[in-house]
C-alpha cells in the first residue's frame, strides 16, 4: 500500500468514527506540480486526497480560520516538520489549542514521501530537536551565500531591486501561517506607518516590518515565496533572521507548544541590562 493509500484509509477512519470533524490535506491542482488544499468533512471526500512530493505547502495557517476550532472539536491536518513547528508556535501564541489538532505527519525526502510516527504535536519533539541540532549544517540556499558575499551597499541595492517589483498584494501575508492578526499593521491608518502605495520606500517598509514580525517565528516553509506573484525571494530574509536568532538566543522557532516568543521573553541571566 502506498503512503497515499495508507493515509487515505487513516483519514476515512478518523472522519467515520467522528474522532475529528475535518481533515485538511491536499488535492490535485491546476498542473502536475501544484496541489490545492482539501478540506474533508466526510469519508467520501477523502477519495480526492493526494499525498506526493508536490505537497509542499504548509497548511497550518488554515487552522486559525475564525471559528474553526471554537467548538472544541478536533481537526486533522497533514503537516511536514515545518508545519508541525508552525502549530507549536500558534499554540504558544494562544491562537489554537494543540490538543484539538490531530497531526498526519509526513516528510519529503527527494523523490520519496515518508510517514512520520505520531499523532499530536508533542510526539514530534525529538524530530524537531534533531532538526535544530542539524540546522547549522543544513544545506543553505545558494542565493544566501551569494548575498552574504555582498557588501552592505550591494546588498541594499539587491533588495531594493527585488522589492521594486512588489505590488503590495500582501499574498505573502495571506499565505503565512504566522500572519494571523485580525488587523495587520499595514491596515492601520491612524497613523499610517507604512505607505500603502507600491513604491521604493513603502515596499521597503513593508518587507522590513514583516521580517521583524517573523523573527524567531518563521519556520522557513516557503509559503511566502511561492505565493509571491513577482517572485521576490522573501524566504531568504526570514531564513537569515532565523539564523541570527538561533545564534544570539539559541532560539529555534516552534520547538514546543510552550516555547516563549524570543522577542518578548526576558531571562534573568541576560547580560544586557537595558530592559530593566
Amino acid at each position: 500500500m502506498t503512503i497515499q493509500e495508507k493515509y487515505k484509509a487513516r483519514v476515512k477512519e478518523l472522519l467515520s468514527t467522528g474522532a475529528v470533524k475535518m481533515v485538511i490535506g491536499y488535492k490535485p491542482g491546476s498542473t502536475a506540480e501544484r496541489r490545492r488544499p482539501l478540506f474533508m468533512r466526510s469519508p467520501e471526500e477523502a477519495d480526492q486526497l493526494v499525498l506526493d512530493t508536490a505537497c509542499i505547502a504548509n497548511l497550518a495557517g488554515y487552522l486559525v480560520a475564525e471559528g474553526l476550532l471554537s467548538d472544541d472539536k478536533r481537526v486533522g491536518i497533514f503537516l511536514k516538520p515545518d508545519g508541525i513547528r508552525s502549530i507549536n508556535i500558534l499554540a504558544a501564541e494562544a491562537q489554537l489549542n494543540i490538543d484539538q489538532i490531530v497531526v498526519l505527519g509526513f516528510d519529503i525526502d527527494g523523490q520519496e514521501v515518508n510517514a512520520l510516527e505520531g499523532e499530536s504535536a508533542g510526539d514530534f519533539s525529538a524530530l524537531i530537536e534533531s532538526i535544530k541540532d542539524h540546522a547549522p549544517e543544513a544545506p543553505r540556499n545558494p542565493l544566501i551565500e551569494q548575498i552574504e558575499q555582498m557588501n552592505p551597499i550591494q546588498r541594499f541595492d539587491f533588495w531594493q531591486t527585488e522589492f521594486s517589483r512588489c505590488i503590495k498584494c500582501y499574498a505573502c501575508r495571506q499565505a503565512c501561517p504566522m500572519c494571523y492578526c485580525r488587523r495587520c499593521i499595514v491596515d492601520s491608518n491612524q497613523p499610517q506607518w507604512i505607505n500603502t502605495s507600491s513604491h521604493t520606500l513603502g515596499n521597503l517598509e513593508w518587507n522590513i516590518i514583516r521580517a521583524f514580525h517573523l523573527s524567531g517565528r518563521c519556520v522557513g516553509c516557503g509559503n511566502c515565496d511561492r505565493a509571491c506573484p513577482v517572485n521576490i525571494p522573501l524566504r531568504l530574509i526570514n531564513a537569515r533572521m532565523g539564523q541570527e536568532v538561533l545564534g544570539a538566543f539559541d532560539h529555534f522557532a516552534g520547538m514546543s507548544e510552550t516555547q516563549e516568543p524570543v522577542l518578548a521573553s526576558f531571562k534573568k541571566d541576560d547580560s544586557e541590562t537595558f530592559i530593566l
Binding site: 501564541e93 494562544a94 485580525r182 526576558f266 530593566l276
Partner: peptide, 15 residues
Amino acid sequence: ETTCAGCWGCVLACP
C-alpha cells in the same frame, strides 16, 4: 480590544 490578536507577547514582555 477589537484589534488585539491575543498572542500574549505583551504579557510576557511587560517587566
